[in-house]
Amino acid sequence: MSIYAYILAMALTTYLIRVLPMTIFRKPIQSRFLRSFLYYIPYCCLTAMTFPSILSSTASLVSGAAALATAILLAFRGKGLVVVALSSSAAVLVTEWLLKLL
C-alpha cells in the first residue's frame, strides 16, 4: 500500500479527534467512567509503547536498559522533556562505546 494512504488515514483520524469536540460537542462529559478512562489513556498508552520496546530498540539489551534507567531517574528528579530525552540518548552512545571496549 502507498505510504500516502497511511499518512492520509493517520492525519484525518487525528484531526477529526481534535476538531469535532472543539466545534460540535461543547458540553462537558458527564460520565465519570468515561472521564476516568480518558484521564488514564495517555499514561497507559505511553507506557505500553515504551516498555518493553525500549529494551530491544538499541544494539544490545544493556544499552536499552541504560537508556530506560537514565530517563526514569532524571524524570523522577523533575528534569524537563528535552534533558531527559537527550540524556537517555547519550546513555545509549556511552554504553555501546563502553561495551565495545570490553
Binding site: 525500549i54 544494539a59 537508556a67 530506560l68 531527559v84 530525552a85 537527550l86 546513555a91 555501546e96
Partner: peptide, 25 residues
C-alpha cells in the same frame, strides 16, 4: 553512523518517560 542513529531513536522513548514519571510520582 548507525551508533548515533540508534541513540537518537531512543529520544522519543525518553520524552514519553519524561511525560509519565512526574504524574506517576
Amino acid at each position: 553512523p548507525v551508533a548515533i542513529r540508534t541513540a537518537l531513536g531512543v529520544m522519543l522513548y525518553g520524552m514519553f518517560i519524561a511525560v509519565v514519571v512526574p504524574p506517576a510520582k
